[in-house]
Design a protein around this nucleic acid. Structure first.
Lengths: 346, 346
DNA sequence: TTAAGTAGTCGACGCGTGTCGACGAATTCG
DNA sequence: CGAATTCGTCGACACGCGTCGACTACTTAA
């Protein structure tokens, strides 16, 4: 081995020796838990600088019961991972970094609770952020039993005792239906998520569709729901079907980012101009994604960055011993008109 | 505090007591470093199962000099973060997990080497994967000095002594120009990345464009390069400019995923049908991204998953003490014809 | 028969930090 | 002026694990 000697990182003992103080004094200078005279503090600090001292994270964690690492569980499952999901990750990551924590990625499937147990009991992480939460999420009891602080990005069936941030999906449907109803649409298509996800209780899919149906009934609008896989191909097929219905569908709403791309292709190939002859709008996609398609899409969704950031704050509050207050947040829908909806034709 | 008592995780001592052996015996049963009789091994294993014992990662790292954590440096800088970048992350994450490591995310900017130094010397991670590598990347010397194993996803100016995986960008330009040349195009637009990135030596931007110019000269094709920010707006402006040139541009190549979206909008608004009246193609975007636009785009790029996976393998090889062999890989370009290029008009 | 292992196990120590108890000196209070 | 604090510092220990040396009971080679 040529020049691959690892330069041994300076330890607290080295700093103490150089500064001529005891090790514990160095610790207190670092944490401020006990008072230190100005003079010694300066000696210690210059010694640290000279040695390039950085506290060993492992030892800190072992001794202090805190690793400074938060984990993000983002199952890359049936639904795939898209631009919009990444917004949450990025936001959470930034927020976590600002608070002096590190973010660890865990791509484990929701069902893989054996791995979860192992990982949680490793003592590696201080807390966990959960994405892709289901109605009866098997990960929640595991985390509770392990005494691991966590925050959901989403909700379970009964989240009353949990810490979570989520979009208020129940408002999405009514908002969209009202918007389209005001424009005179009577037959509205809906491109939702796959049945498999609905069946396992994927919250956004369930709650959004419930709201759609309720408001559609109220407003005398006929809803044509299609549950399809998150693929462009599936979106094409769904749109083709919708176009054959009578009376004709004049607008479509989507909760399926990938499928919507296929749907737009079909509309284009049928020479249906948007929004003059057909209206489209999407739920819960990021601004970037909404502008990616031609034309840009009018959307109803949430501020993803805020959600990620808030989840982080809630989790850290729990870490800091706040076990009493209820930390729950439902994010109001954000309507962004990008001109893809217009008055119903005829 | 109501019921928030953390169930103290079982330790090696607990297992040893229950199994009626010493602590070190438990360790050896776990690591296999020394032989253990079949009988004791079984006693120990059932004790571990009964207690739900999971070794404490921090203590293991402290004592054993290995944390089992790899870090991924992915600067979310000027260029933004898109679907295609995420493919690398995901691939690396999966590969790392398969090898029993965890992936830590570090969104630090390339310039923020102070944070890097701190983080690297924390002893938290065993190795590092670098994304967004620049010609003279300031992070490289820091990592070398710290004796931290790393693998680049990309290359520096002189990577001869480094471990890296990268796409062979020098082939992208020639391949694209030849393809368009064969179709009879003579005036070709190019939508590249921002000048700021070129100036700091962002490899893909530099190497790709060099190849483009060389082959264009060889083939007698006039290249119209535009360096624009990674925004839809900037793409629109660039495309509008390109359409005013004489003789008219008949094809455009893009290395700028976001800007290309704007460019496609402009082409659509000018009623230029693709590929009959105008040809387009993109460098280095994922299949999903290529299919997201209307129409889908013909692309030249790399298999992102392979790169991420290979980077992981190389890094782990270094971790396992392989300091002699040269671990470097240039990934051959992949041409995917999605029908967005055709014969030059007229 | 004896020296030289080998399998199987134990005890002790070190990794680098947080933190508690103790102690002298300086300060405040009654 | 003595007692009670507070300030500033030190030494010792715990955190949970990896690993080295030593020891016993056998097995094998000479």
């Amino acid at each position: 081995m040529p020049s691959s000697k690892k330069p041994k990182q300076a330890t607290r003992a080295d700093v103490a020796r150089l500064a001529g103080v005891s090790e514990s004094t160095v610790s207190y200078a670092l944490t401020g838990v006990r008072p230190i005279s100005e003079e010694t503090r300066e000696r210690i600090e210059s010694a640290m600088k000279e040695l390039g001292y950085v506290p060993n994270a492992m030892a800190q964690a072992l001794a202090g019961k805190r690793s400074g690492i938060l984990a993000l569980l983002f199952p890359v499952g049936e639904r795939g991972f898209n631009e919009t999901d990444f917004e949450y990750v990025q936001a959470a990551n930034e927020a976590v970094a600002e608070d002096g924590y590190q973010l660890l990625l865990w791509p484990n499937a929701v069902e893989d609770i054996e791995s979860l147990k192992k990982i949680v009991n490793q003592g590696l992480v201080d807390g966990v952020l959960l994405m892709e939460v289901r109605s009866e999420d098997p990960r929640v009891p595991v985390l509770i039993e392990a005494g691991m602080p966590f925050c959901l990005i989403g909700r379970t069936e009964d989240p009353s005792k949990l810490t979570y941030v989520d979009a208020d999906f129940s408002q999405w449907g009514p908002l969209a239906i009202r918007h389209l109803g005001d424009l005179g649409h009577k037959q509205v298509g809906y491109i939702g998520i796959a049945d498999e996800l609905i069946n396992v209780g994927y919250g956004p899919g369930v709650r959004t569709e419930t709201g759609l149906h309720e408001e559609a009934g109220r407003a005398g609008i006929t809803l044509h729901p299609k549950h399809v896989a998150a693929t462009i191909r599936a979106g094409r097929a769904a749109m083709e079907e919708l176009l054959t219905s009578t009376p004709p569908v004049t607008a479509v709403i989507s909760l399926n980012e990938s499928a919507m791309v296929g749907a737009l292709e079909v509309l284009a190939s049928h020479d249906l101009s948007i929004p003059e002859q057909f209206s489209v709008m999407s739920f819960g996609i990021s601004e970037i994604a909404a502008n990616m398609t031609v034309p840009s899409q009018t959307t109803i969704g949430v501020e993803g960055k805020d959600l990620g950031r808030m989840a982080d704050q809630y989790l850290i509050a729990r870490l800091n011993g706040d076990n009493k207050s209820v930390l729950q947040h439902l994010s109001a829908p954000v309507f962004a008109d990008r001109g893809s909806t217009g008055p119903a034709p005829e």
